[in-house]
């Protein structure tokens, strides 16, 4: 039961974050929000008895992926300035 409530809360958070990621004007916020979506997703995976997937999502989806986004964004900003 507690799992259910956590799942619902996380699910709603994921969707909110996803909407922020898509619609927020600031790209940096968008990228972070997308990373948070991944992070929350990995919690869902834990709930779903998938620790392997959770680890991978955390390391790759919210970690490396976000870093790559930032590297590229940073590079673009530098070129702009």
């Amino acid at each position: 039961m507690i799992n259910l409530i956590i799942a619902i809360v996380i699910g709603v958070l994921i969707l909110i974050m996803a909407i922020i990621a898509v619609h927020h004007k600031n790209i940096v916020v968008g990228i972070i929000a997308a990373g948070v979506v991944s992070l929350f997703a990995s919690i869902l995976y834990l709930l779903l008895a998938a620790p392997d997937v959770a680890m991978t999502e955390a390391a790759i989806g919210s970690g490396l992926s976000t870093i790559i986004f930032f590297y590229v964004l940073n590079k673009i900003k530098r070129q702009n300035g």
């Binding site: 790209i27 990228i31 779903l48 998938a50 997937v53 986004f69």
Partner: peptide
């Protein structure tokens, strides 16, 4: 979204969504 990076963000969300669906199905 008209911004290229936002489009890529859209893709990662799409992808993550599919992954969640996949794991749910195996539960």
């Amino acid at each position: 979204q008209k911004n290229l990076i936002k489009i890529v963000i859209g893709f990662t969300l799409f992808d993550t969504g599919i992954h969640i669906i996949m794991v749910s199905i195996g539960y």
